[in-house]
């Protein structure tokens, strides 16, 4: 309770602020309608109701977003094009595929970097520098080029996700694989352990906390990559497409619902990784 209560307070404060902002920002439209109809502006009570029942509010009230979210998740068959489960799954599948590829490649490269001095010196500086570059800007071009080569759908988005989750994993894993100190490495040398044994018995286990930290960053990046990858193909399917079509047609409630769906997916991914992390570290005896 000691930990939950402060969080609930902050969340409640955000919701209250949101309702207040919704009234303030949607008020202009209600006043405008009243002026056009030639009637008196409504009293405060009616005003509050009127600001929260609009079809295209400037800022939808939280319950409107939740209702739209519920309608999108449970209101129709999950194969429907209006179902958020359908769109969410399209984005999530690209994210997961890309995340898996990016993580595997990242770990492989990190192992190479740790074992090969030339690789370490030539690749690692670029991997670190690439983190300061807005790589995401490549995404739309990549999608269109792949499209012109006949590759569509899941794969191009997954490649972008893989690319985005790749570098955090490389940098984190290199740090993790180098985490064992000289004493531990010396001990394994006295056992006459080869490179593979040192890797499997010391370096990989020692790198686990670093791996999970970078996995969380990588998963969030992969999701952003998949969403942005859905923009240039013209709003066909996926959460990014819902955002774009909502922005074309001014469907603000739809945008917010898609945004919350994306947030739930991201939170789910990070939560799953956190759970795996807790279980793994506890079984390895590394839990704090």
């Amino acid at each position: 309770m000691n930990r939950v209560l402060p969080i609930l307070t902050v969340v409640a404060a955000i919701v209250v602020l949101w309702y207040g902002a919704a009234v303030a920002m949607n008020r202009a439209w209600v006043l405008d309608q009243a002026a056009r109809a030639g009637t008196e502006p409504p009293a405060f009570g009616q005003m509050v109701v009127a600001t929260m029942t609009q079809e295209r509010p400037v800022l939808p009230a939280p319950h409107q977003v939740v209702a739209e979210l519920w309608k999108g998740v449970a209101g129709q068959a999950i194969t429907s094009k209006r179902s958020l489960v359908y769109h969410g799954w399209i984005t999530l599948s690209a994210t997961l595929l890309g995340f898996a590829i990016g993580t595997a490649a990242g770990i492989a490269l990190a192992v190479g970097i740790v074992h090969n001095r030339a690789m370490d010196m030539s690749v690692l500086p670029w991997a670190i520098a690439s983190q300061t570059i807005p790589i995401l800007a490549i995404a739309p071009m990549f999608i269109v080029v792949m499209n012109s080569m006949g590759v569509q759908g899941l794969v191009p988005k997954a490649i972008i996700s893989a690319y985005l989750s790749f570098f955090p994993v490389v940098v984190g894993m290199v740090k993790g694989l180098r985490a064992p100190d000289a004493m531990q490495l010396d001990l394994l040398r006295t056992y006459n352990a080869g490179g593979a044994a040192v890797l499997g018995k010391l370096r990989l286990p020692a790198s686990m906390p670093y791996l999970f930290a970078s996995l969380k960053v990588g998963a969030a990046a992969a999701l952003v990559g998949a969403i942005v990858g859905e923009l240039p193909t013209g709003a066909v399917a996926g959460l990014g497409a819902r955002l774009l079509s909502g922005s074309y047609y001014g469907q603000t409630i739809q945008i917010w619902a898609a945004l919350f769906a994306a947030a739930i997916v991201a939170a789910g991914l990070v939560a799953v990784i956190g759970l795996v992390e807790r279980v793994t570290l506890r079984r390895m005896g590394m839990a704090r």
């Binding site: 952003v224 969403i227 959460l239 955002l243 945004l259 994306a262 947030a263 939170a267």
Partner: peptide
């Protein structure tokens, strides 16, 4: 950790 770029259309 959320994909905040999504608020861009808003």
């Amino acid at each position: 950790a959320l994909p905040i770029v999504g608020i861009a259309p808003i």
